[in-house]
Design a protein around this nucleic acid. Structure first.
Length: 573
DNA sequence: ACGTAATGGGCCC
DNA sequence: TGGGCCCCCTTACG
C-alpha cells in the first residue's frame, strides 16, 4: 500500500530527475550500482520503463535495506528492485540481484544433479537424452489455472495447513495459527469452523476430542512463559497403526493411540528447543516416519521398536519415557538451514522432498540414499520466515510418476503491471517450472498449497483466506469467459470478474460476535497460546452442517462478485 | 493516506 | 544457555 503509492509518485519524479542528475551521478562512487539497477529496469517487460532509473532519481533517499545513500530498494510500480549491496535474495550468492540471478532464468531453476547421477556412463547418457528431449516442451504455461472461488478472512489468524476430506471431494479443512480449524466447501463457497486445541475433529458433526494436551494446567500467569509453553507443529495420522503422531516446539515427538485418543509415548527426536515442523508416515511402510525440524535436519525413523508398546501404559508429563523403546533413527539429512517440511512421495513412498529456508528444494529419489547428498537441489524462492507461514512444498498425489510438486513463491513477479506471487507447479525430477498459478484476485503470498488428491483443484491458503484454483477449460463455453479474464489479467492485472466466486467470512454480522469474543478472550489473543480454552469463541465464519444453507452472505449458493478484489495490495502501474 | 504492530530465525556476546 | 538485536519484496488494521 504504502510502497505502491510512494513508488507511483516517484515514478514521475524519477523521470524528471533522471535527466537533471545524470551527469552528477556518473561521479558518484556507487555509479556502478546505479548502472546495474538501471539495466535491470531495462530488462523489465515494459520498454518504457527503461527510463525509470530509480537509483538516480532517489539519490537523496536512503536505502532502507543497507542504509546507504544514492539508491533505494523497493517497488517501482510492480517491479521490486533489490538493494544492490545485498546478496541475491534468491540464490543467496553475491555479485548480482534477484533480477539477474542465473538461477532465476535457468530453465531448471538451478537444479543441480548429484555427482553420482552426472557421472559418465549409460545412466548419464540416458539422463542427458531425457533432459534434452524434455527441453523442447519447455514453455511455461501460465494462466491456465485461475482462482475459482474463495473464502476471505475465514480465519482470524493466518492459515497454516490444509487437508482434503478423505472421501468428500468438495471439502477442505484448514487450520490456523491460533489452533482453529475451519471446514470449507469450495463448491458451495461456504464454511464452518471450530476452535481447536490438539484434537480430533469430526468434520460431519463438528465435535472434537482432545488427543494431546501438552499444557494440561493451561496458561498460569506468572508461572507459564513462552519457554515452558508447548506448541504442536507437525502432525500425521497412521491409519494402519491407528497412531497419531505430533511434533512440538521442543524437538519432541508425541505418539497417541487413535482409538483411545490417549498419548502412549513421547520422544526427544530432535535437538532440544527446536520445532518439529512436519511429521510424515511413509505411505507404503508405516514403520517409517520422517520429521523435518528447525534443528536443520530431516530424519527418518523406524518406529517398530516403540510401536509394540501401543496400548501399553501411557507416559505422562515430562518423564520423556523411553522405556518402551525409542524410534530408531535410520537417516539424518542435514541441511544448511531450517527444514520447513520433509515428505515422502505420496504413492511409492520412495522419494523424499524437503523444503529448506535456504531457498532450495531437495529431492532424494530413493529412501536408501537418504544418508547421502540429495539427488537434486532446486533453487526456488520460499525463504521468508517472518510474518508468513513457512512455505512447504507438496507432492501432487495425482501424479503417478511422483514428479509434480507444488509450492508457493515468495518473490513477486511483474504480471502485466501487477506484482503477484505465483504458486509454482514444478517437476521434482528436473527442477523445471511446469506452471505458475497467478490470478489478479490473489495478490498475497500463498505459503500453503494443497493439490486435490483426485480432482484438478488446488487449494491455497494465503493470509487468513483460502482460495480454490481450477484449470481454465480449454474448450466449451466457459472458456471464452475465463480466457477473457485471463487475458484481461495478463494485460492489466485488473481484478477479474465473473468466474470468481468469493465469500467474505468476515461479514458484518459475524464481525460483531467476533469482536465481543475477542475482547472476552483478549488474554489469549497471543498467538503462542492455543485457543482451546476459549471454547465459546466464535469464529469468523458461521457454522453450518452440510445440508444447511450457507452463511448469510453466501446465501443462494454461489455469489458472484464483479467488482471486488480481496485482501492485499493492488499494485498497479 | 498514512503509521505500525505482530512475528520467527539467526547470530553474537 | 539466554537476551538482545537485526532483518528481505508482509499483512491487516487503526
Amino acid at each position: 500500500m504504502e510502497e505502491e503509492s510512494t513508488s507511483e509518485e516517484e515514478d514521475d519524479d524519477v523521470e524528471e530527475e533522471v535527466e537533471e542528475e545524470e551527469d552528477e551521478a556518473e561521479e558518484e562512487n556507487d555509479a556502478d550500482q546505479d548502472d546495474r539497477t538501471a539495466s535491470n529496469a531495462q530488462a523489465g517487460p515494459s520498454g518504457q520503463r527503461e527510463k525509470i532509473t530509480i537509483s538516480l532519481g532517489k539519490k537523496g533517499l536512503v536505502c532502507h535495506v543497507c542504509g546507504k545513500k544514492g539508491h533505494c530498494a523497493g517497488f517501482v510500480g510492480s517491479v521490486y528492485h533489490d538493494c544492490p549491496f545485498k546478496p541475491c535474495y534468491l540464490c543467496k550468492q553475491s555479485g548480482h540481484t534477484t533480477m539477474t540471478c542465473p538461477f532465476r532464468i535457468a530453465p531448471e531453476h538451478g537444479c543441480r544433479q548429484a555427482s553420482g547421477i552426472c557421472s559418465d556412463g549409460m545412466l548419464a547418457f540416458v539422463r542427458q537424452r531425457e533432459l534434452s528431449g524434455r527441453r523442447q516442451d519447455m514453455h511455461i504455461e501460465q494462466n491456465d489455472w485461475l482462482v475459482d472461488s474463495a473464502v476471505l478472512k475465514l480465519h482470524s489468524r493466518r492459515c497454516t495447513c490444509l487437508e482434503f476430506h478423505p472421501t468428500k471431494d468438495n471439502i477442505v479443512v484448514s487450520g490456523d495459527k491460533k489452533g482453529q480449524v475451519a471446514v470449507w466447501d469450495f463448491e458451495k463457497c461456504a464454511s464452518a469452523s471450530s476452535d481447536g486445541l490438539c484434537k480430533v475433529f469430526d468434520v460431519e458433526t463438528g465435535f472434537d476430542t482432545v488427543v494431546l494436551n501438552m499444557n494440561p494446567d493451561g496458561w498460569i500467569p506468572g508461572v507459564t512463559n513462552e519457554r515452558t509453553w508447548v506448541m504442536l507443529y507437525g502432525l500425521d495420522v497412521c491409519t494402519e497403526r491407528q497412531l497419531i503422531i505430533a511434533g512440538d516446539n521442543k524437538g519432541k515427538v508425541y505418539f497417541a493411540d487413535a482409538r483411545t485418543n490417549k498419548e502412549i509415548a513421547q520422544h526427544q527426536l530432535h535437538k532440544k528447543g527446536n520445532k518439529v515442523n512436519t511429521v510424515h508416515v511413509n505411505p507404503m511402510n508405516c514403520n517409517l516416519m520422517m520429521t523435518g525440524s528447525n534443528d536443520w535436519t530431516a530424519r527418518i525413523f523406524d518406529i517398530r521398536a516403540m510401536s509394540s508398546s501401543v496400548g501399553g501404559s501411557s507416559s505422562n508429563g515430562n518423564s520423556g519415557s523411553k522405556s518402551d523403546g525409542e524410534p530408531m533413527e535410520v537417516a539424518c539429512m542435514d541441511h544448511p538451514k531450517v527444514v520447513n517440511a520433509a515428505y515422502f512421495s505420496p504413492r511409492s513412498g520412495t522419494k523424499i522432498m524437503t523444503t529448506c529456508i535456504d531457498n532450495r528444494l531437495r529431492i532424494w529419489d530413493y529412501i536408501l540414499s537418504a544418508s547421502d547428498a540429495p539427488d537434486r537441489e532446486i533453487v526456488h524462492s520460499h525463504d521468508f520466515n517472518r510474518y508468513l507461514t513457512p512455505f512447504r512444498a507438496e507432492w501432487d498425489p495425482k501424479d503417478a510418476a511422483e514428479r509434480t510438486v507444488i509450492i508457493g513463491r515468495y518473490i513477486s513477479e511483474d504480471f502485466g503491471g501487477a506484482a503477484l506471487h505465483p504458486v509454482d507447479i514444478m517437476d521434482a525430477s528436473t527442477g523445471r517450472l511446469l506452471t505458475q498459478l497467478v490470478d489478479a484476485n490473489l495478490s498475497t503470498i500463498c505459503p500453503v498449497n494443497k493439490p486435490h488428491p483426485r480432482l484438478d483443484v488446488i487449494i491455497s491458503g494465503s493470509s487468513r483466506s483460502l482460495y480454490a484454483w481450477r484449470p481454465v477449460s480449454k474448450d466449451g463455453e466457459e472458456d471464452s469467459e475465463r480466457a477473457k479474464v485471463a487475458a484481461e489479467k495478463k494485460n492489466k492485472a485488473a481484478p477479474s470478474s465473473n468466474h470468481y466466486v468469493s465469500y467474505d467470512a468476515d461479514d458484518a454480522a459475524t464481525e460483531k460476535k467476533k469482536r465481543k469474543a475477542a475482547s472476552a478472550a483478549a488474554v489469549q489473543e497471543d498467538e503462542g497460546v492455543p485457543a482451546g480454552k476459549g471454547k465459546g469463541k466464535k469464529s469468523a465464519a458461521t457454522v453450518f452442517s452440510e445440508d444447511d444453507t450457507p452463511p448469510s452472505k453466501a446465501k443462494g449458493g454461489r455469489k458472484k462478485k464483479d467488482d471486488d478484489q480481496p485482501e492485499g495490495k493492488k499494485r498497479k502501474k
